[in-house]
Simulated assay, not measured.
Amino acid sequence: MTKTVQKALIVGAGTAGMSAAITLRRIGVEVDLIDINPNWGALGAGLTITGPTLRALHQLGVYADMVEEAYVGEGIQVCNTQGEPLRKLATPMPADSPTASSGGIMRPTLHRILARHANAEGSAIRLGLTVDALEQDDSGVHVTFSDGSRGRYDIVLGADGVFSKVRGLIMPDAPKAEYTGQSCWRLFLERPASVERRTFFLGGPYKVGFSPVSATHMYMFLLEGTPQVFIEPANFHCELAKRLESYGGLLAEVHDSLSEKDNAAINFRPLEIFSLPAPWYRGRVLLIGDSAHPTTPQLASGAGMAIEDALVLAEELVLDDGVEQAFARFMDRREARCRLVTDSSMELGRLEQARAPVEEQTKVVERALLILSEPI
Protein backbone atom coordinates (compact mmCIF):
# COMPACT_ATOMS: atom_id res chain seq x y z
CA MET A 1 0.00 0.00 0.00
CA THR A 2 1.20 3.51 -0.74
CA LYS A 3 1.45 5.96 2.14
CA THR A 4 0.63 8.95 -0.07
CA VAL A 5 -2.63 7.57 -1.47
CA GLN A 6 -4.60 5.17 0.67
CA LYS A 7 -8.15 5.95 -0.50
CA ALA A 8 -9.37 7.06 -3.94
CA LEU A 9 -12.71 8.01 -5.42
CA ILE A 10 -13.27 7.18 -9.09
CA VAL A 11 -16.22 8.96 -10.72
CA GLY A 12 -17.47 7.04 -13.73
CA ALA A 13 -17.51 3.24 -13.98
CA GLY A 14 -16.80 2.84 -17.69
CA THR A 15 -13.62 1.55 -19.30
CA ALA A 16 -11.33 4.19 -17.77
CA GLY A 17 -12.92 4.05 -14.32
CA MET A 18 -13.03 0.27 -14.02
CA SER A 19 -9.47 -0.07 -15.32
CA ALA A 20 -8.28 2.45 -12.73
CA ALA A 21 -10.19 0.63 -10.00
CA ILE A 22 -8.39 -2.58 -10.94
CA THR A 23 -4.90 -1.04 -11.05
CA LEU A 24 -5.30 1.00 -7.86
CA ARG A 25 -6.64 -1.95 -5.87
CA ARG A 26 -3.60 -3.96 -6.96
CA ILE A 27 -1.25 -1.43 -5.37
CA GLY A 28 -3.27 -1.49 -2.16
CA VAL A 29 -5.43 1.62 -2.56
CA GLU A 30 -8.96 1.52 -1.14
CA VAL A 31 -11.30 2.41 -4.01
CA ASP A 32 -14.82 3.79 -4.15
CA LEU A 33 -16.14 3.55 -7.71
CA ILE A 34 -19.37 5.40 -8.53
CA ASP A 35 -21.49 5.80 -11.64
CA ILE A 36 -24.49 8.01 -12.30
CA ASN A 37 -26.29 5.22 -14.18
CA PRO A 38 -28.30 3.07 -11.76
CA ASN A 39 -28.50 0.35 -14.43
CA TRP A 40 -24.77 -0.26 -14.73
CA GLY A 41 -23.80 -1.54 -18.14
CA ALA A 42 -22.77 -0.55 -21.64
CA LEU A 43 -24.84 0.13 -24.72
CA GLY A 44 -23.83 0.33 -28.34
CA ALA A 45 -22.29 -2.00 -30.87
CA GLY A 46 -18.65 -2.92 -30.93
CA LEU A 47 -15.14 -1.63 -30.39
CA THR A 48 -12.19 -2.22 -32.66
CA ILE A 49 -9.11 -3.05 -30.61
CA THR A 50 -5.56 -2.31 -31.78
CA GLY A 51 -2.42 -4.24 -30.83
CA PRO A 52 -1.33 -1.59 -28.31
CA THR A 53 -4.76 -1.81 -26.68
CA LEU A 54 -4.48 -5.60 -26.50
CA ARG A 55 -1.10 -5.13 -24.83
CA ALA A 56 -2.71 -2.79 -22.30
CA LEU A 57 -5.45 -5.36 -21.66
CA HIS A 58 -2.71 -7.95 -21.09
CA GLN A 59 -1.00 -5.68 -18.56
CA LEU A 60 -4.37 -5.15 -16.90
CA GLY A 61 -4.73 -8.92 -16.59
CA VAL A 62 -7.78 -9.42 -18.80
CA TYR A 63 -6.28 -10.49 -22.15
CA ALA A 64 -7.22 -14.14 -21.61
CA ASP A 65 -10.84 -13.03 -21.22
CA MET A 66 -10.52 -11.08 -24.47
CA VAL A 67 -9.23 -14.13 -26.36
CA GLU A 68 -12.03 -16.29 -25.01
CA GLU A 69 -14.96 -13.90 -25.36
CA ALA A 70 -14.05 -11.58 -28.24
CA TYR A 71 -11.84 -11.62 -31.35
CA VAL A 72 -8.09 -11.31 -31.82
CA GLY A 73 -6.22 -11.46 -35.11
CA GLU A 74 -3.73 -9.71 -37.35
CA GLY A 75 -3.78 -6.93 -39.92
CA ILE A 76 -6.35 -4.86 -41.81
CA GLN A 77 -7.80 -5.74 -45.22
CA VAL A 78 -8.37 -2.70 -47.44
CA CYS A 79 -10.95 -3.08 -50.25
CA ASN A 80 -12.56 -0.85 -52.82
CA THR A 81 -16.25 0.04 -52.72
CA GLN A 82 -17.18 -3.22 -54.50
CA GLY A 83 -15.39 -5.35 -51.94
CA GLU A 84 -12.41 -6.14 -54.14
CA PRO A 85 -9.16 -6.46 -52.12
CA LEU A 86 -6.61 -3.67 -52.63
CA ARG A 87 -3.98 -4.35 -49.99
CA LYS A 88 -3.38 -5.64 -46.50
CA LEU A 89 -2.08 -3.26 -43.85
CA ALA A 90 0.19 -4.70 -41.21
CA THR A 91 -0.68 -3.89 -37.61
CA PRO A 92 2.86 -4.09 -36.24
CA MET A 93 3.74 -4.97 -32.69
CA PRO A 94 7.18 -5.78 -31.29
CA ALA A 95 8.32 -9.37 -31.89
CA ASP A 96 8.15 -10.13 -28.17
CA SER A 97 4.58 -8.87 -27.77
CA PRO A 98 2.47 -11.32 -25.74
CA THR A 99 -0.67 -10.46 -27.71
CA ALA A 100 -2.13 -10.47 -31.19
CA SER A 101 -1.96 -7.20 -33.12
CA SER A 102 -5.65 -6.55 -33.74
CA GLY A 103 -9.01 -7.37 -32.21
CA GLY A 104 -12.60 -6.43 -31.59
CA ILE A 105 -15.18 -6.75 -28.85
CA MET A 106 -18.78 -5.85 -28.12
CA ARG A 107 -19.05 -2.95 -25.69
CA PRO A 108 -21.27 -4.91 -23.26
CA THR A 109 -18.75 -7.78 -23.32
CA LEU A 110 -15.84 -5.51 -22.45
CA HIS A 111 -17.95 -3.97 -19.67
CA ARG A 112 -18.72 -7.40 -18.22
CA ILE A 113 -15.06 -8.43 -18.28
CA LEU A 114 -13.83 -5.26 -16.57
CA ALA A 115 -16.71 -5.29 -14.05
CA ARG A 116 -15.90 -8.88 -13.15
CA HIS A 117 -12.28 -7.97 -12.42
CA ALA A 118 -13.12 -4.72 -10.62
CA ASN A 119 -15.45 -6.63 -8.32
CA ALA A 120 -12.91 -9.40 -7.78
CA GLU A 121 -10.27 -6.84 -6.75
CA GLY A 122 -12.59 -5.51 -4.04
CA SER A 123 -13.69 -2.08 -5.27
CA ALA A 124 -16.69 -0.59 -3.44
CA ILE A 125 -19.14 0.14 -6.27
CA ARG A 126 -22.11 2.50 -5.86
CA LEU A 127 -24.57 3.23 -8.66
CA GLY A 128 -27.03 6.02 -9.41
CA LEU A 129 -24.58 8.45 -7.85
CA THR A 130 -22.35 11.32 -8.91
CA VAL A 131 -20.53 14.22 -7.25
CA ASP A 132 -22.02 17.65 -6.51
CA ALA A 133 -19.01 19.38 -4.94
CA LEU A 134 -15.26 18.94 -4.42
CA GLU A 135 -13.37 20.84 -1.72
CA GLN A 136 -9.60 20.37 -1.60
CA ASP A 137 -6.94 21.04 0.99
CA ASP A 138 -3.28 20.07 1.24
CA SER A 139 -3.99 16.53 2.39
CA GLY A 140 -7.16 15.44 0.63
CA VAL A 141 -10.50 16.09 -1.06
CA HIS A 142 -13.87 16.49 0.66
CA VAL A 143 -16.59 15.17 -1.66
CA THR A 144 -20.31 15.92 -1.52
CA PHE A 145 -22.31 13.30 -3.40
CA SER A 146 -25.59 13.77 -5.25
CA ASP A 147 -27.47 11.87 -2.53
CA GLY A 148 -26.26 14.35 0.11
CA SER A 149 -23.67 12.04 1.66
CA ARG A 150 -20.03 13.08 2.03
CA GLY A 151 -16.64 11.43 1.92
CA ARG A 152 -12.95 12.26 2.10
CA TYR A 153 -10.30 10.90 -0.25
CA ASP A 154 -6.60 11.27 -0.92
CA ILE A 155 -7.29 11.62 -4.67
CA VAL A 156 -10.31 11.82 -6.97
CA LEU A 157 -10.29 10.56 -10.57
CA GLY A 158 -12.75 11.97 -13.09
CA ALA A 159 -13.48 9.09 -15.46
CA ASP A 160 -16.98 10.25 -16.35
CA GLY A 161 -16.58 10.80 -20.07
CA VAL A 162 -16.88 13.52 -22.67
CA PHE A 163 -19.49 15.44 -20.66
CA SER A 164 -17.63 14.99 -17.37
CA LYS A 165 -19.21 16.47 -14.24
CA VAL A 166 -15.81 16.35 -12.51
CA ARG A 167 -14.17 18.35 -15.28
CA GLY A 168 -16.86 21.01 -14.94
CA LEU A 169 -16.24 21.23 -11.19
CA ILE A 170 -12.45 21.65 -11.35
CA MET A 171 -12.16 23.38 -14.73
CA PRO A 172 -15.30 25.49 -15.24
CA ASP A 173 -13.70 27.25 -18.22
CA ALA A 174 -12.62 24.04 -19.97
CA PRO A 175 -13.61 23.72 -23.64
CA LYS A 176 -16.95 22.09 -24.34
CA ALA A 177 -17.44 19.17 -26.70
CA GLU A 178 -18.13 20.18 -30.29
CA TYR A 179 -19.40 18.29 -33.31
CA THR A 180 -16.56 17.21 -35.60
CA GLY A 181 -18.62 17.25 -38.79
CA GLN A 182 -18.89 13.46 -38.88
CA SER A 183 -21.42 10.95 -37.58
CA CYS A 184 -21.01 7.20 -37.19
CA TRP A 185 -23.43 4.36 -37.95
CA ARG A 186 -22.87 0.93 -36.42
CA LEU A 187 -24.73 -2.33 -37.01
CA PHE A 188 -24.21 -5.70 -35.26
CA LEU A 189 -24.11 -8.57 -37.75
CA GLU A 190 -23.31 -12.24 -38.14
CA ARG A 191 -19.76 -12.68 -39.37
CA PRO A 192 -19.26 -14.59 -42.63
CA ALA A 193 -16.16 -16.76 -43.00
CA SER A 194 -14.79 -14.38 -45.65
CA VAL A 195 -14.28 -11.62 -43.05
CA GLU A 196 -11.08 -12.83 -41.46
CA ARG A 197 -9.86 -9.50 -40.04
CA ARG A 198 -10.72 -5.82 -39.82
CA THR A 199 -11.86 -4.77 -43.28
CA PHE A 200 -12.14 -1.25 -44.74
CA PHE A 201 -14.01 -0.27 -47.91
CA LEU A 202 -12.39 2.93 -49.17
CA GLY A 203 -12.81 5.24 -52.14
CA GLY A 204 -16.55 5.80 -51.89
CA PRO A 205 -18.68 8.58 -50.42
CA TYR A 206 -18.27 7.11 -46.92
CA LYS A 207 -15.68 5.17 -44.99
CA VAL A 208 -17.25 1.78 -44.31
CA GLY A 209 -15.85 -1.29 -42.63
CA PHE A 210 -16.36 -4.55 -40.80
CA SER A 211 -14.77 -5.31 -37.45
CA PRO A 212 -14.97 -8.87 -36.04
CA VAL A 213 -15.98 -9.03 -32.38
CA SER A 214 -16.19 -12.81 -31.88
CA ALA A 215 -15.90 -16.08 -33.79
CA THR A 216 -19.47 -15.65 -35.02
CA HIS A 217 -20.21 -11.91 -35.15
CA MET A 218 -18.89 -8.54 -36.30
CA TYR A 219 -20.11 -4.99 -36.53
CA MET A 220 -20.31 -2.75 -39.56
CA PHE A 221 -19.43 0.93 -39.25
CA LEU A 222 -20.09 3.80 -41.63
CA LEU A 223 -18.62 7.26 -41.13
CA GLU A 224 -20.24 10.19 -42.90
CA GLY A 225 -19.59 13.91 -43.03
CA THR A 226 -22.79 15.84 -42.59
CA PRO A 227 -24.31 18.75 -40.68
CA GLN A 228 -25.41 17.55 -37.27
CA VAL A 229 -28.93 16.20 -37.66
CA PHE A 230 -31.42 14.17 -35.68
CA ILE A 231 -32.61 10.98 -37.36
CA GLU A 232 -35.74 9.30 -36.10
CA PRO A 233 -34.77 5.80 -34.88
CA ALA A 234 -37.75 4.34 -36.75
CA ASN A 235 -36.02 5.45 -39.97
CA PHE A 236 -32.56 4.12 -39.19
CA HIS A 237 -32.82 1.15 -41.58
CA CYS A 238 -33.98 3.33 -44.48
CA GLU A 239 -31.31 5.96 -43.93
CA LEU A 240 -28.49 3.43 -43.57
CA ALA A 241 -29.66 1.63 -46.72
CA LYS A 242 -29.49 4.89 -48.68
CA ARG A 243 -25.86 5.32 -47.69
CA LEU A 244 -24.96 1.81 -48.88
CA GLU A 245 -26.56 2.08 -52.32
CA SER A 246 -23.31 2.50 -54.27
CA TYR A 247 -21.43 -0.34 -52.52
CA GLY A 248 -21.06 -3.91 -53.74
CA GLY A 249 -20.06 -7.30 -52.42
CA LEU A 250 -20.93 -7.99 -48.78
CA LEU A 251 -22.05 -4.41 -48.30
CA ALA A 252 -24.64 -4.87 -51.05
CA GLU A 253 -25.91 -7.92 -49.19
CA VAL A 254 -26.23 -5.85 -46.01
CA HIS A 255 -28.07 -3.15 -47.97
CA ASP A 256 -30.54 -5.66 -49.39
CA SER A 257 -31.20 -7.26 -46.01
CA LEU A 258 -31.95 -4.09 -43.99
CA SER A 259 -35.47 -3.84 -42.67
CA GLU A 260 -37.45 -2.26 -39.87
CA LYS A 261 -36.52 -5.10 -37.51
CA ASP A 262 -32.88 -3.95 -37.64
CA ASN A 263 -33.57 -0.52 -36.12
CA ALA A 264 -32.91 -1.72 -32.58
CA ALA A 265 -29.50 -3.06 -33.66
CA ILE A 266 -28.44 0.13 -35.45
CA ASN A 267 -26.50 2.74 -33.50
CA PHE A 268 -26.16 6.28 -34.86
CA ARG A 269 -24.35 9.09 -33.13
CA PRO A 270 -22.59 12.35 -33.94
CA LEU A 271 -18.88 12.48 -33.10
CA GLU A 272 -18.13 15.15 -30.50
CA ILE A 273 -14.74 15.97 -29.00
CA PHE A 274 -12.76 18.76 -27.36
CA SER A 275 -9.05 19.43 -26.83
CA LEU A 276 -8.17 19.98 -23.19
CA PRO A 277 -4.90 21.85 -22.52
CA ALA A 278 -2.48 20.28 -20.06
CA PRO A 279 -2.37 19.60 -17.22
CA TRP A 280 -5.44 17.39 -16.83
CA TYR A 281 -5.54 17.83 -13.06
CA ARG A 282 -6.13 20.43 -10.40
CA GLY A 283 -4.59 19.64 -7.04
CA ARG A 284 -5.59 16.12 -6.11
CA VAL A 285 -8.27 15.67 -8.80
CA LEU A 286 -7.16 14.10 -12.09
CA LEU A 287 -9.10 13.50 -15.31
CA ILE A 288 -8.51 10.27 -17.25
CA GLY A 289 -9.94 8.66 -20.38
CA ASP A 290 -12.56 10.56 -22.37
CA SER A 291 -12.87 13.13 -19.58
CA ALA A 292 -9.41 14.39 -20.57
CA HIS A 293 -8.70 13.28 -24.15
CA PRO A 294 -11.75 12.08 -26.11
CA THR A 295 -11.12 10.93 -29.64
CA THR A 296 -13.04 10.00 -32.74
CA PRO A 297 -13.00 6.28 -33.68
CA GLN A 298 -10.78 6.43 -36.78
CA LEU A 299 -7.68 5.08 -35.04
CA ALA A 300 -9.61 2.65 -32.80
CA SER A 301 -7.58 3.69 -29.76
CA GLY A 302 -9.92 5.51 -27.36
CA ALA A 303 -10.41 2.53 -25.06
CA GLY A 304 -6.71 1.74 -25.23
CA MET A 305 -5.72 5.22 -24.11
CA ALA A 306 -8.14 4.97 -21.18
CA ILE A 307 -6.70 1.64 -20.05
CA GLU A 308 -3.14 2.94 -20.45
CA ASP A 309 -4.04 5.94 -18.27
CA ALA A 310 -4.97 3.54 -15.47
CA LEU A 311 -1.78 1.50 -15.84
CA VAL A 312 0.52 4.52 -15.90
CA LEU A 313 -1.20 6.22 -12.97
CA ALA A 314 -0.74 3.17 -10.74
CA GLU A 315 2.93 2.91 -11.75
CA GLU A 316 3.53 6.52 -10.76
CA LEU A 317 1.54 6.45 -7.52
CA VAL A 318 3.34 3.37 -6.24
CA LEU A 319 6.60 5.37 -6.19
CA ASP A 320 5.00 7.08 -3.19
CA ASP A 321 6.69 10.48 -3.43
CA GLY A 322 3.60 12.69 -3.46
CA VAL A 323 0.43 13.25 -5.46
CA GLU A 324 1.71 16.33 -7.28
CA GLN A 325 4.85 14.50 -8.41
CA ALA A 326 2.87 11.43 -9.51
CA PHE A 327 0.33 13.48 -11.46
CA ALA A 328 3.11 15.52 -13.12
CA ARG A 329 4.92 12.35 -14.24
CA PHE A 330 1.60 10.94 -15.44
CA MET A 331 1.21 13.97 -17.70
CA ASP A 332 4.78 13.63 -18.96
CA ARG A 333 4.05 10.06 -20.06
CA ARG A 334 0.51 10.48 -21.33
CA GLU A 335 0.01 13.84 -23.02
CA ALA A 336 2.01 13.36 -26.24
CA ARG A 337 0.79 9.78 -26.73
CA CYS A 338 -2.86 10.75 -26.30
CA ARG A 339 -2.39 13.78 -28.56
CA LEU A 340 -1.01 11.48 -31.26
CA VAL A 341 -4.25 9.51 -31.14
CA THR A 342 -6.60 12.50 -31.11
CA ASP A 343 -4.67 14.43 -33.78
CA SER A 344 -4.27 11.41 -36.09
CA SER A 345 -7.94 10.53 -35.73
CA MET A 346 -9.00 14.06 -36.59
CA GLU A 347 -6.59 14.10 -39.54
CA LEU A 348 -8.16 10.90 -40.82
CA GLY A 349 -11.61 12.42 -40.40
CA ARG A 350 -10.60 15.40 -42.52
CA LEU A 351 -9.12 13.15 -45.20
CA GLU A 352 -12.25 11.00 -45.25
CA GLN A 353 -14.49 14.02 -45.66
CA ALA A 354 -12.24 15.31 -48.47
CA ARG A 355 -12.29 11.84 -50.09
CA ALA A 356 -8.51 11.83 -50.17
CA PRO A 357 -6.71 8.98 -51.95
CA VAL A 358 -6.69 5.65 -50.12
CA GLU A 359 -2.89 5.71 -49.87
CA GLU A 360 -2.94 9.07 -48.10
CA GLN A 361 -5.39 7.77 -45.51
CA THR A 362 -3.59 4.47 -44.88
CA LYS A 363 -0.26 6.26 -44.35
CA VAL A 364 -1.76 8.10 -41.38
CA VAL A 365 -2.98 4.82 -39.86
CA GLU A 366 0.34 3.02 -40.42
CA ARG A 367 2.42 5.86 -38.98
CA ALA A 368 0.29 6.20 -35.84
CA LEU A 369 0.05 2.46 -35.16
CA LEU A 370 3.82 2.10 -35.51
CA ILE A 371 4.42 4.79 -32.88
CA LEU A 372 1.75 3.37 -30.59
CA SER A 373 3.36 -0.06 -30.75
CA GLU A 374 6.31 1.36 -28.82
CA PRO A 375 6.35 0.87 -25.02
CA ILE A 376 3.98 3.05 -23.01
Results as ranks from 00 to 15, higher is better:
64 A>F: 02
64 A>G: 11
65 D>H: 05
65 D>R: 07
66 M>Y: 11
66 M>C: 08
66 M>I: 14
67 V>Q: 11
67 V>M: 09
68 E>Q: 14
68 E>W: 08
68 E>G: 02
69 E>T: 00
70 A>Q: 08
71 Y>P: 01
71 Y>M: 03
73 G>D: 12
74 E>G: 06
74 E>R: 15
75 G>F: 01
75 G>R: 13
75 G>Y: 03
76 I>Y: 15
76 I>M: 14
76 I>K: 10
77 Q>V: 08
77 Q>S: 11
78 V>K: 11
78 V>Q: 04
79 C>M: 08
79 C>S: 11
79 C>I: 10
79 C>N: 15
79 C>R: 02
80 N>Q: 11
81 T>H: 05
81 T>C: 08
81 T>I: 13
81 T>N: 01
81 T>S: 09
82 Q>R: 10
83 G>W: 03
83 G>C: 03
83 G>A: 03
84 E>S: 12
84 E>H: 12
85 P>Y: 13
86 L>D: 00
87 R>Y: 13
88 K>N: 09
88 K>V: 03
89 L>D: 00
89 L>Q: 04
89 L>R: 03
90 A>V: 14
90 A>W: 00
91 T>W: 06
91 T>I: 04
92 P>F: 01
92 P>Q: 01
93 M>E: 01
94 P>G: 14
94 P>D: 05
95 A>D: 15
95 A>T: 13
96 D>F: 13
97 S>V: 15
97 S>K: 13
98 P>K: 00
98 P>L: 07
100 A>T: 01
101 S>R: 00
101 S>Q: 02
103 G>Y: 10
103 G>I: 15
103 G>S: 11
103 G>A: 15
103 G>P: 00
104 G>S: 10
104 G>H: 08
105 I>M: 12
105 I>L: 12
106 M>L: 07
106 M>A: 13
107 R>M: 02
107 R>Y: 08
108 P>T: 08
109 T>W: 08
109 T>M: 05
